[in-house]
Amino acid sequence: MSSLPTPKNREAIFTDRLSARKRRGMIFRNVCLAMTIFGVLSLGALLYDTIGSAFTWAAVEEREVRGRVQPNVVQTWSLWEGIYNRDELQRLTAENYPEAEFRFFSWVNINFLTNFPSRFPELSGFRSPLIGSLMVIGITALLSFPIGTGAAIFLEEYGTKGWISRIIETNIANLAGVPSIIYGLLGLTIFVRGAGGLTGGQTVLAGAFTMTLLSLPIIIVAARESIRAVPPSQRQAALALGATRWETTYSHVLPSALPGILTGTILAMSRAIGETAPLITIGALTYVAFDPSGARDIFTVMPIQIFNWVTLPQATFHNLASAGIVVLLSILLTMNGIAIVIRRKTERTW
């Protein structure tokens, strides 16, 4: 019941039902909250699992490998398990592995980042996948950003609004949803076999070109949205000063649209860095024990190595896979961080 007097011109047939409406609003808000919590919990579960497996408590023996004494992890327990049951695990170690030392063993360590992969988990490193991924993503970003932005500018600023334009728009949006393996097959035909002279075959360059194709639809869609968001009044002001179309776009539209375009680029790069199937198709290998000598050399990438470790029977390789995931996520976060910094610097308010 309302605490205020009813307005005297109100007809009696208004049924306010204020409390029912408010309740409905509350339910809606709680559903949204539940969705958010679900998302956060899923992410949390992923991080919990991965971190628990990459930073472990382990029973560590020693063995000789190629003339040197190296650790040999015979059993691992997740980080979280060991926090609460340290004594219990210590006892188990002493019982089952009398030769072993019980200690904290982090699979993400400096050796992991500098060593090449090995059949011995404790000596295995992430070096070639890490370098390969960084090279592929670096070249992809350098290529896809200008191409995607240029295409978006052309479609938005210079394109006609006819039916051709609509067909192009629909197709670009659809391309963003094409399974990535298709890009791999395309890349194999065009970049590895067709343009083999330019790329050198199954190389970083072929991989980067393929990933560029994959990223372009996402960047173009995001860039077009950002360009559209620039108010027409800005364009009109520039044109009214006797500026050409290009001068208006370059000096006013593009700088204002830049934060949105960067967001699209980072989203595309985040997807590209996790792609496995298309890169395997174009010939990325799994075990590479040397640094690529340049962009025209053989390579491997992080997701491929992670998947390979996950499928091996020895349990400690699964810990390595988690360590690889931790590194991959760190790089993703860094990339996002850089994009956010660039966004802040170039952001303008109306």
Binding site: S233, Q236, A237
Partner: peptide, 14 residues
């Protein structure tokens, strides 16, 4: 437009 300029209703500085 170089010779005939325009000022708009809502101020729109860059």
């Amino acid at each position: 437009r170089r010779r005939i300029g325009m000022v708009f209703q809502k101020p729109n500085p860059f």
